[in-house]
Nucleic acid binder design. Structure first.
Lengths: 205, 205
DNA sequence: TATGTTAATGACCCGTGGGTCATCAACTCA
DNA sequence: TGAGTTGATGACCCACGGGTCATTAACATA
């Protein structure tokens, strides 16, 4: 008869549970993730999760907010504080976005689950769109306009859907999620290609 | 007491079931798709599905093969039979790919489910990679080489990962799957932007 | 019309997993 | 140190859905 040892850690629990949750979600997806497995990974009993999150759905919502929150806003700083050519700024922004979105296993996982389960979580989908996608698009738009204003970029680029510029990044994210085993992606090299083709596609001369 | 009317349609069943299956899969995803719903949509009883497909997994495999099969190979014809500038050919290839992949609800659905459930179907994932992705990449690579050989494209483009060129298309696909409700995508206009930026990014002068 | 064959049915079985709650133990404070 | 509070536990409950199979009815054949 071994004694059952319990630990009371009201403060630390939520974060521990979120960490365990995204780990399991990333491995097997939302539908295949069992609450019991998340609990096991967090080193607690299943019931404990329900002390902090009412349902599985709410736990997922917690995961999204926790791991997406810190990203937001950083991009904005870049563009206002930077002095230099628009070209340099664009290149820097793209690399930054790769680091934040493609380079983060957690954020790739969130994106993947929103792709698969998005219809069941419309509020999270629009949250993601509002906080990540449309911010990114706005940023691209702003940078392109700046480049045109400074005479570095062609004027026609203003008629291009800014999402096109972000496109290759999404592909890289998708690739790392599903094809990396069969054919690993060198993100560094890929990102260089992305910057290169965008720069050329956008600049005058 | 209404009579139960049964129809015997051994030949037509598999295709009817596959059609019902992809419809349901596209609406709710693999994990949330119930065999009973697929049966209902096909106008048959649940047990009937199992006369033609051993398991749910196998049914999904059938869906992928059925709706992906016809795509393959068409792209190849394009490049061998076409006489013209490499630039025209690239533009045409991109537009063609949009029509085939982004424009088809069924193929977007398959891609979405492979993203979410890919880990559970490694053989399907590698099938998709082999038959769709790496073909696309090879095609891009070939076209770029041709453009360089004909002196239309810059030589540096050969060092760019061809997947970058396909990237925006993947984004369009993802977008239509999850964000179209909150912010609908004009695929035509988006594709034009894609062609434009790639052409500029790739051509000399 | 009778008989055999087989496509089709749907009630049923049962493993699975989200969610509950009576019980317990860690900690507090008097 | 004893009573009260509350974080933690895990056995249990039960809805759900994949898969089965005895039964039924459509069609062929003679």
């Amino acid at each position: 008869m071994t004694e059952v040892i319990r630990k009371r850690r009201k403060e630390a629990r939520p974060e521990e549970i979120l960490a365990a949750a995204i780990a399991v979600l990333g491995e097997v997806g939302f539908a295949n993730a069992r609450m019991a497995d998340i609990a096991k990974r967090a080193g607690i009993a299943k019931g404990t999760i329900y002390l902090y999150f009412k349902t599985k759905d709410e736990l997922f919502q917690g995961v999204v907010q926790h791991y997406l929150g810190p990203t937001l806003g950083r991009l904005d700083d870049l563009k206002t504080n930077f002095e230099g050519t628009a070209a340099e700024l664009v290149a820097m922004a793209i690399r930054h976005a790769y680091r934040e979105l493609v380079g983060s296993w957690e954020r790739r996982t969130i994106m993947r689950i929103l792709i698969s389960e998005g219809a069941r979580f419309p509020q999270l989908t629009s949250y993601y769109h509002r906080e990540v996608i449309s911010r990114g698009i706005l940023m691209v738009k702003t940078l392109l306009e700046r480049g045109v204003a400074q005479g570095e970029f062609r004027e026609e680029v203003l008629s291009i859907n800014p999402a096109v510029v972000m496109g290759p990044m999404i592909m890289a994210s998708v690739w790392k999620m599903i094809f990396d085993e069969v054919s690993p992606l060198d993100v560094e090299e890929y990102a260089r290609g992305h910057v290169e083709i965008v720069m050329r596609g956008v600049m005058k001369a």
